[in-house]
Structure formats: structure tokens, C-alpha cells
Design a protein around this nucleic acid. Structure first.
Lengths: 208, 208
DNA sequence: TTATTTATGTGTCAATCGTTACAGATATAA
DNA sequence: TTATATCTGTAACGATTGACACATAAATAA
């Protein structure tokens, strides 16, 4: 009971990828149906039939983004040996992913819906949840670092995780303002300079 | 030749302050004329007569923001004794200013126009310029710190300034996501932990 | 073939967007 | 008072917004 009726004349996955690019560049509310249909090469009834509407399409574009773009950063980071290397890779891959010439700059999850508004409230909350998940994921990786003796048990893991995610979110703004990969890497290096004081607090206390 | 004709029936400065609040909360494109006239308590012809239109009104709201809200952060920061205290005050005042209950969260300069768009391109570029000025101001303060012997001449002042501004910009996102003042202060403290390694690089090299 | 199902393209819906014409109201200047 | 200048409120402008009705096209199932 699958392939009855007239077959779809466009590649759904390719169309979704193009929709993601538009949302990424212009944000959720800043993207019009006209923008989408132009980029996807289809008329609006086809978009509605295939994706359910603008909001549903954004949701699917967000999933696509997490699967493809997010993986570039988190996949590499979670493959690192130590907790430090995880954070280092996280930020360095961010510097790279946020400045690829073929893609919009910065992060779709951060930039797509920052303002409250009747038409984007559910989308916004979904993105807030996504961003909170980043903190959780990073904190969990730090917890493993404590278990392995890489990080002091006295360290405030939640604060450290929030700190590095905050730096990454700031890098989205910097990327939007035209920062190059090298400039973002310098920022990332600066942020990494806090690692020792943050993860070995008693060492600092002893030095005083 | 000043006060001929029917006098204005509303307080221009108070109306501007309310317009600023709306732009701050909803962003430039996310704010409609209906939002503005409702918040300002005037009809659109009065708005056009007094402020010149939506874009001109935003420009004036931006000036108002820089003068009042920006001063809360930079005024205190630039009054600090040392370069470190400047950065510390900069971030701590940010944590406070970004989470006042009576105001929208985060920073108007960071959040108002992050996406390209025909209707907001000039406004966006103006905000980009504003953000670049923050880096310049902070870097200049660091340069004074080098002159006073507080910071090593080998330190990369541009990278340090960009780093702390990036953290502040990330704090705008965190604030929008509901972070409390205390949580932002923890993030700020984490960022400040990088100060010694960043400003005394030879000390780090010697320790190896 | 005929019936059924799904996709496409044209055209259009009401609502909202930023902006402004216009007439009436309210002040000063002569 | 009369003339002039400016502001205010109503009402509407053309353009664009997201969404969809409808008829037609193109596939499979019987």
C-alpha cells in the first residue's frame, strides 16, 4: 500500500537540504514560503503535501541539521580520548563548521528563533531545548573525565559545560559578523586557556 | 520659529523608551508597526512625524539603548582600576544587565538583527559595527594594561578582547534561554579563569 | 479498460505588512 | 479675528504573508 498515485517529481531529501539552508541563513520567521519554494524548486501545495507546512518543514530541517551538521562537531568531539580533547575538538570543529564558505555562517540552532512571537513560539522552545541538551551532553562527558581522574571532583561541571557552550554560542554571533576560521580558533584557544584553573581548582587555591 | 502649530501630545522620550523595549524583545523585523504604536500609545502618522519611520525609529532606539543600557556596563567597567577589574566588571555588569526582570533579557545590539534581509540590511550593518566597536574599546583598555605592566607585552590583545566579547555575546543567548543572574555570573567567573594564562603567556611556557 | 490514489500548477483566500492621504484639531503669529 | 503651521485620528493604500481550493496529471490496483 505504498506507491500508489502519482509519484513525487522531486527529491524530498534534496529539497529538505535546501530548505535547511534557507532557514539557516534567514531564520525561521525571516524565511517566507516564497523563499522556500524558490530554493526547493517546488510550488507551495507540493511543500504542504510533502512536509506538512512551514513549521513542520522547519522541524524536519532541524533534524536534518542535527544529523548532518551537528554530527561534524559532536561526532568528532565524542570520539576524543580525554575530556580536555573533547572540549578542544568541540570548539575547533565549531570554528570550522561555522565558517565553511558553502554554508551559512554560525549555527542554525542558535540563530533561527531568538525572539518570542506567536508564530514561532513552539519552534523557539524546541531550539531552547536543543541548546539545553548541548549543555547536558558536554556535562556528561566531563563527568566521565572526573571518573577517569582527569578532572578534580571539586570542579563545578555544570558551570564548565555552560561556559563552553556559551562560548560556542558567542562564536555564532562572531561568525555572522564575518569572523574567519582562524579568528574563531583564536577565540577557542583563549577559552581553552581556562581549562586548568577550572578543572583543577585546588591547584589554584594552593598556589595562593 | 520653533513652537508653532499644534504641540505634540505625547512624551517623545518616553515613547522612544517604549519603542526600544519592543525592539529589544522582538528584534527589528519581528517588531511590527502595530506593536510599536500599541506600546508607544500613538498612531502611526504621529510615529512617522516624530521619528521618521520604523528604521529611523530603530536607529534612535539604538542610540537610546547605548546611552542608557550600555552605560550600565561600560560606564562601570571603564571606571575600574586595573585591566583585569575592567573585564571582571564588564562581565559581572553584563550578568546583571541581561537578567533584570523589568527588561527584556540579553542585549539589543546582539539580538536585534542577525539575519540578512532586504528590509533590515542597513540596520544589521549598523549593529555589526556596534559589536566591532565593543572589541575595539576593550582592546584599547587592555593596551593600557600592557603599558601599566599588568599584562605581558607578548599577549594577543586582539584575541583576548574578541574572546571576552564573544563570551558576552554568548551570555545574550543564555539569558534568552532563561539563565538567571547567578548562572551568568558562574559563566563569567569561568571565563575570567582564563585571564592569567592569557595575559601572562610566558609564565605558562616557563611552567612546562 | 476503469477506478482509485497521490502529486502538481494555477490561482486565490483573508490577514497583515509598512506607509501615507486626508480632514479635522490645536497651537502661535500677524 | 484671520492666516499659518504642526500634530492627531481614521481610513486606506499596494504589497506580501502563510495557507489552501480546485482541476488536471500520472501513477497503481482491479
Amino acid at each position: 500500500m505504498a506507491d500508489r498515485g502519482r509519484p513525487r517529481s522531486f527529491d524530498k531529501d534534496a529539497a529538505l537540504a535546501r530548505a535547511m539552508d534557507v532557514f539557516w541563513l534567514k531564520g525561521y520567521e525571516g524565511t517566507s514560503m516564497a523563499d522556500l519554494t524558490a530554493a526547493m524548486g517546488i510550488a507551495s501545495p507540493s511543500l504542504y503535501a510533502a512536509f506538512g507546512g512551514k513549521e513542520e518543514l522547519f522541524r524536519q530541517a532541524l533534524d536534518y541539521y542535527a544529523k548532518h551538521e551537528g554530527e561534524l562537531i559532536w561526532g568528532a568531539a565524542l570520539r576524543a580520548e580525554t575530556a580536555y580533547e573533547t572540549v578542544e575538538t568541540f570548539l575547533m570543529q565549531t570554528a570550522r563548521a561555522f565558517t565553511r564558505r558553502s554554508r551559512p555562517s554560525g549555527c542554525l540552532v542558535v540563530l533561527s528563533a531568538l525572539h518570542p512571537g506567536e508564530h514561532s513560539e513552539t519552534v523557539r522552545k524546541e531550539l531552547v531545548e536543543h541548546r539545553a541538551q548541548s549543555v547536558k551532553d558536554l556535562r556528561e562527558r566531563l563527568r566521565q573525565g572526573v571518573a577517569r581522574g582527569e578532572i578534580s571532583p571539586a570542579a563545578d561541571l555544570d558551570a564548565i559545560a555552560k561556559y563552553y557552550v556559551t562560548v560556542q554560542q558567542g562564536m555564532s554571533i562572531q561568525a555572522r559578523d564575518g569572523a574567519t576560521r582562524q579568528q574563531l580558533e583564536l577565540i577557542a584557544r583563549a577559552a581553552l586557556a581556562a581549562w586548568r584553573p577550572l578543572t583543577a581548582p585546588e591547584e589554584i587555591a594552593a598556589a595562593r
